[in-house]
Write a protein that binds this DNA or RNA. Structure first.
Lengths: 129, 129
DNA sequence: TAACTAAGAAATTCTTAGCCC
DNA sequence: GGGCTAAGAATTTCTTAGTTA
């Protein structure tokens, strides 16, 4: 069930196995294994896949037929703006860190924030990637 | 994350570990392992747990705060699990970063994640939550 | 009764590499 | 490039039993 759903929605999102693999930090072989039922993703990977594909784990597992992410109300996401899926994944993981590592993550973000400021208010030029 | 949610909603449903174990055809030891983070349920078991507890896999995995099996809008401020407020703030800040700085933030979090993993492999020092 | 943990057996996944189209 | 699969290594889960409150 998961295998069919995963392949279906990956194609629907216009991603290759390699592309999806990169988003969730694994290899194309592993994605292929999922899609052919040779293995099943861990819970953490399942979450990451749902994030990367903008769907729900219930959809991937076949508990619902709704493939969109409408029920998404995670506490640290705001409904207003588009968010980098990779960033979402990173922060979900960070929320499970030890206190010490969480603090380090926050400190580093704050450091980056200062750097952004220092660069001067510049309108983001999306000429990359 | 799953461990907290599982324990929470099991109690909310008035079930003992033994009772839940019987519903999903496993042993109380296995349920205890889930709730204490010593192991994680397979995808199939995850589905069964969501069924038995009348909730969703997205809730059990912490992707949504809706604990009922019916899709319903809920404000994101009421959350069952304690998310670090500072981390939430940092997350919102990082969302506005330039692509480059966002990538750096993600990379750093991934680095911390590897560190957490390595730590977890060590012999338990009874200093864990 | 209810819940937690240790230890080993058992089962699974992941990685690497090669193959096909 | 895009996708599939084999085989062994690596990792994880499950079971049983004992322990605690």
């Amino acid at each position: 069930m998961l295998s069919k759903r995963l392949k279906l929605i990956r194609n629907r999102r216009g991603l290759t196995q390699t592309g999806l693999a990169h988003k969730v930090k694994t290899t194309k072989g592993t994605i292929s294994n999922y899609e052919n039922g040779h293995s099943t993703p861990s819970n953490e990977m399942l979450r990451d896949l749902a994030d990367a594909l903008d769907t729900t784990t219930d959809y991937l597992l076949g508990r619902t037929d709704i493939d969109t992410n409408v029920s998404r109300t995670v506490s640290y996401s705001e409904s207003d703006f588009e968010t980098d899926p990779d960033l979402q994944i990173a922060f979900r993981e960070a929320s499970d860190f030890s206190e010490e590592n969480r603090k380090q993550a926050i400190d580093f973000i704050n450091y980056l924030k200062e750097k952004e400021k220092a660069k001067g208010r510049k309108i983001p030029n999306s000429s990359d990637e």
